[in-house]
Design a protein around this nucleic acid. Sequence first.
DNA 1: ATAAATTTTTAGACTAACCTAAAAAATATA
DNA 2: TATATTTTTTAGGTTAGTCTAAAAATTTAT
Lengths: 218, 218
Amino acid sequence: MFTHSEENYLKTIYHLELDSEKGISTNAIAKQLETKASSVTDMVKKLSEKEVVIYKKYKGVTLTAFGKKTAANIVRKHRLWEVFLVEKLNFSWDEVHEVAEQLEHIKSPKLINQLDAFLSFPTHDPHGDPIPDKNGNLKTIEKSLLSTLQKNECGICVGVDDSSSEFLQFLDKKGIILGEKITVLEKEEFDDSLQISIQDKKLSISNKIANNLYIKKA
Amino acid sequence: MFTHSEENYLKTIYHLELDSEKGISTNAIAKQLETKASSVTDMVKKLSEKEVVIYKKYKGVTLTAFGKKTAANIVRKHRLWEVFLVEKLNFSWDEVHEVAEQLEHIKSPKLINQLDAFLSFPTHDPHGDPIPDKNGNLKTIEKSLLSTLQKNECGICVGVDDSSSEFLQFLDKKGIILGEKITVLEKEEFDDSLQISIQDKKLSISNKIANNLYIKKA
DNA sequence: ATAAATTTTTAGACTAACCTAAAAAATATA
DNA sequence: TATATTTTTTAGGTTAGTCTAAAAATTTAT
Ligand SMILES: [Mn+2]
Ligand SMILES: [Mn+2]
Ligand SMILES: [Mn+2]
Ligand SMILES: [Mn+2]
C-alpha cells in the first residue's frame, strides 16, 4: 500500500501534528527527515494523490482521517517492537529506536496482532509513550513535566520527552527509572535546578533534565 | 551495506548454487526472482563491482567467499525469524515465509544474536531447513527423500523439499508432522505410491508427496 | 506600503531498479 | 559445417526518491 519512504513521511507528519495546530510546513518535515524541502514538496504531492494528506501550496499539509489512522498504525508497530526488544531481547531503552525504525515497516497484520498478544497488550513503550490501539486511537494520560512540580510535590516518573540515547543513558547513570516515584525536595530559584528523591536516593538535577521528564501527579 | 534488492539477489544465487556445480545463469535467477534476464544482467554487474559475485559475460555468476557469507547470513535471519513466528507467535508453518521474507532484511547484528538466544539457538527452521551459524556455515545432515525408502524401512520425517503453503497445508491435513517416525508399509510398483504409518495412523501417499518429504534414516 | 528576508515550489538532473525490443553470443540441429 | 534456435547482453526508456539552483510566494521589517 505505502512505500517505506511514504510511511516515514506519514509518521513524521503525524508526530509534528501532535504539537501544532496549523498545517505542517515542508521545511519542518524536511528537517525531521533530514532531507530537502524540495523533496518534501514532491512527496506531499504524491501523498495528497493517495488521499492521506491535504496539501495546499505554500500552506503546509494536514493528515486526513485515513492518513492519521495509517500513521498511527506505523507508530503502533514502532512502539510494540520497542517493547519486544526491551522485554524479550534484553535491549536497553536507548538501543531500540533505530531497530524499531526498520521493524515498523514490516507488513503483516497478523504479525502485529500476535506480537501485541505475546507482549500482553502493553499500553506504553519503553520511553513511556502510549501505544495506539488497532484503530489508531491514542489514550493520552495527563502527565506534566517534572519542571512544573513545586517543592514537596511528587509523582510517578512516566516518560521522557527527549528520547535520544545520550539522554537515556544519562538517566540510567543517575538512576532515574520509569515507574518510580519522584519527590521534589528543593527547588532552586536562580537556575531552576531541583533536589529530588527517587528510590531512597537524593539527587540534584538541572532544569534541562527536569524539562525532559514526564511525571504523573500522585 | 546491501540494498533490499541486492540481498534478494544474493540469497537467490546462494540457493541456486546449492544444487548446481556451474555458474548460475541470469535466466535461472530471473525465473526465481520473477524478473527479467536483462534486469538480472544489470544487477549482477553491480554485485560483481561489490565483489560478492564473479561474473563472466555469458558464463553465469558464482558467489565469492564474501558473497557466500553475506548470503548465508540473510538465510540465517530468514530461518531464525521463521522459528520465532512459529514458536512464539503461533504462526503455522505455511504462513511464515512471506513475513520472514521481509524480516530477513532488518539490519541489526544485536537483534539477530539476541533472537537466536531467545529461541535457544535452534538448528533448523520450521520446514526442517538448517540455520547457518554466525559465520555462515551450514551443517548439513544426511537426509533422503521418502521416495527412496524401501518396504519396511523407516525414518524420522525431518524436512520438506517443496515448502509452498499448498503442500504444507496438505501435510497438515494428512497429519504428517516433522519429527515423527514414518515407516513404509507397502510400495506400489506401477505408480510408486506408498502405504506408510505415522503416529499409529496408516495412510497412502502418492509419489509426488514422497518426492517432497525428507527422512533421516533410523 | 514597499522592500528585504525567508520559505516554498519549480525546473532539471541523478541513481537504483526495473522494463521492452533489438543485437550478439552460445548452443542445438540438420 | 552451416543454419536455426535459445540464451544473454545491450540500448534505450520508466518510475521512485532524491538533489541543486533558480523562480515564485509569503512573511517580516522598515
Ligand atoms: Mn522508519
Ligand atoms: Mn519509543
Ligand atoms: Mn526478501
Ligand atoms: Mn523455511
